[in-house]
């Protein structure tokens, strides 16, 4: 790995001012499990001049319930979320999503803040030494369109003929389904607005903006998370899905369903939500909801198989909320 400058930030303010000092030439490091891989492979055309370590900032590692609202510090390790009994009971989809992320070691290192800010896994983008200077890196095109796109978006690109890389996070769809609010050094953003993308970005964060905490409102009803990957550990999802369902007299009163790894950002399946409202969570109900979820799919040359998988994930996430 090439060398770089290194700053231990003592406070969020210090971290922000360090980021400003470097302009867009510095990166924030927390768990480091995503960032260091990118740096070792020299994925990006520009190598960071400095890393701003935020692990040295106290007070960002916590899990708290206050009046049913779950608050999680950005530096909270995924393993701590996955194994927290209160989260498992109160916001099961998030605990399960954290639990199904990567492997034990990576969950012990990786933070929730880092997990939602992680970069795409597209194998063109990530090919070492910037082998493919793609659209996302300021280049001219997305190589996946004519290449092997078996793990790419089935719901279109970021822009027309744009980047087709999917968002790889397991916790992101859970946060969207659970209607989380993400607080940064500048503002509070609803999770579903957080993952807005341009051709080159995965989140709405500015260069000098850092996630500090995540709040999840009390969940009335149940939530569930399911994931499909080739391996049961280590892997990023081929498709995952989180659902949060409110039931009233056996019928669905409220529904939030979010798929991930199928689109350039977590894909809230609004049509699927509409389809299940007022219905029971039974075979017929989940089938019609799942069909609605993928009705708008536009698969690429190698990834049509993801459509039935996405459908199955929606069904199972809903059944998990029964």
């Amino acid at each position: 790995m090439k060398n770089f400058g290194h700053v231990n930030a003592a406070t969020l303010e210090e971290a922000v001012s360090a980021l400003r000092r470097y302009g867009n030439r510095a990166a924030v490091i927390a768990g480091g499990t995503d960032l260091l891989g990118k740096m070792k492979d020299e994925v990006l055309p520009a190598y960071p001049e400095a890393l701003i370590n935020i692990k040295t900032i106290p007070g960002l590692d916590f899990i708290r319930y206050e009046g049913g609202t779950l608050s999680i510090g950005a530096l909270t390790r995924l393993e701590d979320i996955a194994t927290n009994d209160a989260v498992r009971n109160g916001h099961a989809a998030l605990a399960e999503a954290a639990h199904r992320t990567a492997s034990t070691h990576l969950r012990e290192m990786g933070t929730i803040g880092g997990n939602i800010c992680q970069d795409i896994r597209c194998w063109y983008y990530r090919n070492p030494q910037n082998r493919f200077p793609c659209l996302r890196k300021g280049g001219g095109r997305c190589y996946a369109i004519d290449g092997d796109n078996r793990y790419h978006s089935i719901f279109g690109g970021s822009v027309e003929k744009g980047c087709y890389a999917v968002h790889p996070s397991d916790t992101a769809p859970a946060l969207v389904a659970l209607d989380a609010t993400i607080t940064t050094t500048r503002r509070a953003i609803r999770a579903e607005d957080f993952f807005q993308v341009s051709a080159a970005k995965t989140t709405v964060l500015e260069d000098d903006e850092i996630v500090s905490r995540i709040d999840l409102p009390p969940l009335v009803g149940k939530s569930a998370f399911v994931k499909f990957a080739l391996r049961k550990a280590i892997d990023f999802p081929i498709v995952n899905c989180a659902a949060a369902i409110g039931l009233s007299r056996g019928k669905v009163r409220s529904a939030r369903i979010c798929l991930n790894a199928v689109h350039v950002k977590p894909y809230r399946a609004v049509k699927a939500e509409e389809a299940i409202i007022g219905k029971a969570i039974d075979e017929a109900g989940v089938e019609s909801s799942a069909a609605a979820a993928v009705a708008g799919a536009k698969p690429m040359s190698h990834n049509a198989y993801m459509v039935p998988i996405a459908k199955a994930m929606v069904k199972r996430a809903l059944l998990g909320c029964k």
């Binding site: 231990n8 260091l36 890393l51 390790r77 034990t104 070691h105 990576l106 290192m109």
Partner: peptide, 19 residues
Amino acid sequence: CTVIMDGRPVLSCMTLAIE
């Protein structure tokens, strides 16, 4: 490359010594 750091199993290849 696992080592135990402050009670957690961590990957030493993905950990910066300076941290």
